[in-house]
Nucleic acid binder design. Structure first.
Length: 173
DNA sequence: TTGGCGATTGGCT
DNA sequence: GCCAATCGCCAAT
């Protein structure tokens, strides 16, 4: 689960889809070394790396290696579980399926931006990771979406058949 | 200092 | 399905 504390209350959902950007991955932002923009990707595993893509959408990653080693996991979709009214308001839609389906949409729904860059996601705070204790079901694996370099690597993971997973329907079976 | 280009989205055809 | 919006990053000048 990804959980967000906002002035209006708590909102969040189950993480259904991720992409890995491991060490040495040409598509990863850490590939060319540490810079002011990507430095939080080099924090101890479990910290947030947030950046703005295409000038329009924020993306949330979880750092995934030891301190000084740059790598992370992109959170691509949530199944809304709580604070749905809050997310509807921030996304300006009432379509449950569209609230947090996609990396930019889930950041908009939970008001995630660069102010959260670098926070520890393993501690309760403005944004953190939790578990609802439920089993996840069958995990599918395939190519990552929307990249050009290292595009063939099967580093996208998703809950099979779930309608809140992003991308074409053919990619969630 | 500048130009090209993204780990996307939403609106329109 | 196509495409513009929008801006920070970074490589090259």
């Amino acid at each position: 689960m990804l959980v967000r504390k906002l002035p209006e209350g708590v909102a969040g959902g189950r993480i259904l889809e991720t992409e890995a950007y491991p060490v040495g991955d040409a598509a990863g932002h850490a590939y060319r070394g540490i810079t002011p923009r990507n430095q939080t990707l080099f924090l101890e595993r479990g910290h947030a790396y947030v950046y703005l893509a295409y000038g329009t959408s924020f993306m949330l990653n979880v750092s995934s290696e030891a301190p000084g080693v740059g790598a992370g996991v992109l959170i691509r979709a949530l199944e809304p579980a709580g604070g749905i009214g809050i997310m509807e308001h921030r996304r300006a839609t009432k379509r449950l399926r569209d609230l947090a389906r996609g990396p930019g949409r889930l950041c908009a729904a939970l008001d995630i931006d660069r102010s959260l860059d670098g926070i520890d996601l393993c501690r309760k705070g403005p944004l953190w990771l939790a578990s609802d204790g439920q089993a996840m079901g069958e995990i599918g694996q395939g190519k990552r979406i929307g990249i050009t370099r290292a595009a063939e690597s099967p580093l996208r993971f998703y809950l099979r058949g779930n309608s809140f997973v992003s991308g074409p329907r053919a990619l969630n079976s």
